[in-house]
Amino acid sequence: MAQSIVKEFTKGLWAEVPPFRLVLGLCPVLAVTKSVENGIGMGIATTFVLVCSNFLVSLLRDIIPAKVRIACFIVIIATFVTVVELMMQAYTYPLFLKLGIFIPLIVVNCIVLGRAEAFASKNPPHMAIADGLGMGIGFTLSLGALGAVRECLGDGTILGNPVFGPDFQPFTFMVEAPGAFVCLGLLLCLMNLIGKK
């Protein structure tokens, strides 16, 4: 039993890491990873929503009628997203300003609905939490990694600290939208290269 919880948890970290392996939830991946801070902030917000909604969906999985399950999932997810949004506004306002519209957009993030539908509605609560936590952390790390590459090249900083010294001329392309696509493609390519061996 304990072993399978570990398995559900770890699959989100590498084997099924959402943006790179499942290629899901690309909207926030491309939009908010201008810096490490934004990426990780977004990842944590999504993780919170993912764990809470997975838990609740899994608890109610026998009560929710099959025909209206998507509507129920969305209500649950939207509730938690709004909670996160209000909380971020109240306590981490600068980060909220940077993420802006992408916080409410977690509602339509495929990962959250996807895990609710594919996993949480068929498994007991403790497994669903492990799954949500694993997926969330995998998502957070991916966003952090992408954010690190883009911030490092595009702004010459990591978490706001300059890494290259004053003579570095930032590769601004990387923090623009097309840079996100190119960067994601190259990281995917790297993941596949490593995974093949």
């Binding site: 601004t172 990387m174 623009e176 097309p178």
Partner: peptide
């Protein structure tokens, strides 16, 4: 183009 966008 990428150079132009980056280093205006």
């Amino acid at each position: 183009t990428i150079l132009m966008v980056s280093w205006h």
